[in-house]
Design a protein around this nucleic acid. Structure first.
Length: 814
RNA sequence: GCGGAUGUGGUGGAAUUGGUAGACACGCCAGACUUAGGAUCUGGUGCCUAACGGUGUGGAGGUUCGAGUCCUCUCAUCCGCACCA
């Protein structure tokens, strides 16, 4: 019987389904593993990246199941989001219908790959029962002060018609459609992720060695913590008067308080309230006002590409320590979103300030010794700094902060690059933000018993404006507090909110899904996820948000977990001709076609064999053939098996070839633990199995074949589950798939040992010696064998590395 | 500019952590067999050389009996962040 993947695979997929083979047990005491591959967006079809992601996760899940762990290996659908609305606009399909029919199709595709997912725990994030609990969390966050609404400058994508979070802006463009992001002032809801910045930063140390260092570093940089001094610049009397008494000064932040005596000007962002006031009240030269407005209309990225540009505002502030008058400018390099949108400028010791001062001929005052020329940003001793002169600058930083605090003029403080997470989206296909606007009561959360606030289905999706806003009735409601007519919030939540807590949802028994969002006991048992697998593109977005949500939900009492993902594996991309597979480039391989042609096992084997999971994988059609060939060969060799259980073998009576075959088999077994539990280098385990099969092929002992297949089918089952289970059923009644196998040390005992003989550091020849040979005997044998290269040489040093080699260091005889 | 990685045959990639570089596979070459198949099997295959031998892990140094692996410098490529005061 030749290998027929389609029959074997269909057969076992059906049996697994009937046996409910992959459901976790309800026990919360058994040893457990939670293996999670990032859930897919139901775009319509699987791509190779998905196959890779799930092949890796499935191998681990199956491995641990065999080691007697209670394994949670779930799958679901990240189902809200723009593409569903785009499909609605393009093809006139309702986003809900589009999404659920895509899910049905993709579920079938996943099935044909033989992935060992729990079927009962599957859900889509657009299920109303999921929205219900999410809205409850959101309301609780609001009540705790972690969610707030404010009007501010936001990133706006005109093509997607929505606001974007800072994390969703890549090089000034929308992460999804790549259009340049515009700035716009509008109200929105924000989650106070900054209040968790310190914990998010500190807990990264727990992840070291378990997450890729690159991801940890990216998160650390993204949070961007810096410590320094915050103080207030008082406006001069005249300046206050000019500003109609509306302002008396402004706060600035610096990480270099040691350079405070070098301040020669101060600069405000074009969006700073004082700048705005001056512009709006016509207190500036009309031409200058126009230029400032022009800068304010530019995005941060555009500004970064411009030369330094700025204008004097005709006002001054007082230096808090020297009492000197300092001119105030507005400048395009001052960011509104950081440090209060205002800086103290020290041109002598800051490159940007220097460039600006040089351009506008502002004074430059050196206050730190060192370097040949200015600007000098290194360390050194302070000069011209009053009582702090002669102090080393690192000391001076602390001393100046202390002094300012004592004098009540400022305080030591911490700043973050991280911005609060804007979660409002002006789109239809998302979870509605469960609030109501009441003329009398203001912003009021919906009553818990009324959740979920579900989406209306009768909407017209045109791409123009928010369909919820345009819906005739949906937004009209009663105030949950006073009962008067009120307006429902029409913004929906960022889809990253859903993916921030789904890992807890799977851990909750589906029987409780309606009643609770997260079951505390089960969450504490299953989380953290023992192995999380996904693409590196989520290094800051999803992985930061999910860490944040975990901590917030912990503090709301839903569980006691600090970090959601204990270990993280970031898989490499799947490439074709050196480029990422994509429909637009036309360099894709369709998983369905591959499975149809070769079967799921071949697809999985190739994907795990072609490269280590962390690396990029270059597609190669003929290497797929190679993977297929290996499985065929494995299948064919079932005829060599003579027994139905693990035989007892008298190792010493075997032929040399049989001994070697056993050795290769057990080498593979030895390797497997390391591969499945730590390195994930499936390619090397597969190679070891290929070596073992090649070695078995060179001998003909039935017992050795039986043992070899018994072990190899066990090792390969997580990778190529259908064919191995089929063979295992036929040959061993599946006993070898349940067993935890032990290495038989006797196969590694050698009758003679091969030593490499190196002379002068170069490999010259080999010798075979008995394992009991003494060092002297080995050296004597090596010298004899290497005689030819020792002629005219004097041995200056002799090294014997046990079981490996002999190295004779030589020099010519004089 | 800052941060993180990665450089090994024609290709994908191994190398027990300082001990025979190139396992395993693809490709290629030669041969066998055939019930012409997605065949299969056998042998070969880093480079230079007729051979002895030499040489070889991006490059240059260094440590060592011995370096792909450790150290210093350097080049190249990729990724992330980017006026963060």
């Amino acid at each position: 019987m030749s290998y027929k993947p389609s029959e074997i695979e269909a057969k076992w997929q059906k049996i697994w389904e009937e046996e409910q083979a992959f459901e976790p047990s309800d026990s919360t005491t058994q040893k457990k593993k939670y293996i999670l591959s990032m859930f897919p967006f139901p775009s319509g079809r699987l791509h190779m990246g998905h196959v890779r992601n799930y092949a890796i996760g499935d191998a681990l899940a199956r491995y641990y199941r065999k080691q007697d762990f209670n394994v949670l290996h779930p799958i679901g659908w990240d189902a809200f989001g723009m593409p569903a609305e785009n499909a609605a606009i393009k093809h006139g399909r309702h986003p809900k219908e589009w999404t659920y029919s895509n899910i049905d199709y993709m579920r079938k595709e996943l099935n044909t790959l033989g992935l060992s997912f729990s079927k009962t725990r599957e859900f889509a994030t657009c299920d109303e029962v999921y929205t219900k609990h999410e809205q409850k969390f959101i309301i609780e966050m609001y009540e705790k002060g972690l969610l707030y609404r404010e009007s501010t400058t936001v990133n706006w994508c005109e093509t997607c018609h929505t606001v974007l979070a800072n994390e969703q802006v890549e090089e000034g463009c929308c992460w999804r459609c790549d259009n340049p992001v515009e700035l716009k002032e509008m109200p929105g809801y924000y989650l106070d992720i900054i209040s968790y910045a310190d914990e998010l930063l500190d807990d990264l140390t727990q992840l070291e060695g378990k997450w890729p260092s690159q991801v940890i570093t990216m998160q650390r940089n993204w949070i961007g913590k810096s410590q320094g001094l915050e103080f207030k610049f008082e406006l001069t009397k005249e300046s206050k008067a000019k500003l109609d008494g509306k302002f008396d000064g402004y706060e600035v932040f610096t990480t270099r308080p040691d350079t405070i005596y070098g301040v020669t000007y101060s600069a405000l962002a074009p969006e700073h309230p004082i700048t705005k006031y001056l512009v709006e009240k016509g207190l500036l030269d009309a031409e200058v006002a126009e230029k400032i407005k022009a800068i304010a209309n530019m995005t941060e990225v555009e500004r970064a590409q411009q030369d330094k540009e700025g204008y004097p505002l005709g006002i001054s502030v007082i230096h808090p320590l020297t009492g000197e008058e300092i001119p105030v400018w507005t400048a395009n390099f001052v960011l509104a979103s950081y440090g209060g949108g205002a800086v103290m400028a020290v041109p002598a010791h800051d490159e940007r300030d220097f460039e600006f001062a040089t351009k506008y001929k502002l004074p430059i005052k050196r206050v730190i010794e060192g370097g040949d020329e200015l600007p000098y940003t290194g360390s050194g001793t302070l000069i011209d700094s009053d009582r702090f002169s002669c102090v080393e600058n690192e000391e001076a930083k602390i001393a100046i902060i202390n002094y300012m605090e004592e004098e009540g003029k400022g305080k030591g403080t911490t700043n973050y690059k991280l911005r609060n997470w804007g979660v409002s989206r002006q789109r239809y296909w998302g979870a509605p933000i469960p609030f109501v606007h009441c003329d009398d009561c203001g912003l009021v959360p919906e009553k818990t018993e009324n959740l979920p606030v579900a989406l209306p289905e009768d909407v017209e999706i045109t791409g123009e404006g928010n369909p919820l806003e345009n819906h005739p009735t949906w937004k009209h409601c009663k105030c949950p507090k006073c009962g008067k007519d009120a307006l429902r919030e029409t913004d929906t939540l960022d889809t990253f909110v859903q993916s921030s807590w789904y890992q807890f949802r799977y851990a909750t028994n589906p029987k409780k899904w309606d009643e609770v969002g997260i079951d505390k006991e089960e969450a504490n048992y299953w989380l953290g996820v023992d192995q999380y697998i996904g693409g590196i593109e989520h290094a800051i977005l999803h992985l930061l948000y999910a860490r944040f949500f975990t901590k917030v939900l912990r503090d709301l009492g839903y569980h006691d977990i600090d970090e959601p993902f204990t270990r993280l594996l970031t898989q490499g991309m799947v490439l074709m001709d050196g480029a990422k597979m994509s429909k637009s480039k036309g360099n894709t391989v369709d998983p369905d076609a591959l499975v149809e042609k070769y079967g799921a096992d071949t697809a999985r084997l190739f994907i795990l064999f072609a490269a280590p999971p962390q690396k990029e994988l270059e597609w190669n059609d003929s290497a797929v053939d190679g993977a297929f060939r290996f499985i065929k060969k494995l299948y064919d060799r079932k005829s060599k098996v003579t027994g139905s259980a693990l035989p007892n073998i008298d190792h010493s009576s075997l032929s040399k070839e049989s001994k070697l075959a056993r050795q290769k088999v057990y080498e593979a077994l030895q390797k497997s633990k390391d591969v499945y539990e730590s390195t994930f280098a499936f390619n090397t385990l597969i190679a070891a199995c290929m070596e073992a099969l090649n070695a078995l092929d060179k001998q003909d002992n039935g017992d050795v074949w039986t043992e070899g297949m018994y072990v190899m089918l066990n090792l390969l089952e997580p990778i190529i589950p259908h064919v191995t289970t089929e063979l295992s059923e036929e040959l061993f009644n599946r006993a070898n798939l349940k067993a935890v196998l032990e290495v038989k040390e006797e196969v590694f005992v050698q009758e003679s040992i091969l030593y490499v003989v190196m002379i002068g550091g170069k490999k010259r020849t080999e010798i075979e010696v008995s394992p009991s040979a003494s060092q002297e005997e080995i050296l004597a044998a090596a010298k004899e064998a290497g005689e030819k290269w020792l002629n005219g040489m004097q041995i200056v040093k002799e090294i014997v590395v046990p079981n490996k080699l002999v190295n004779l260091a030589v020099k010519p005889v004089n």
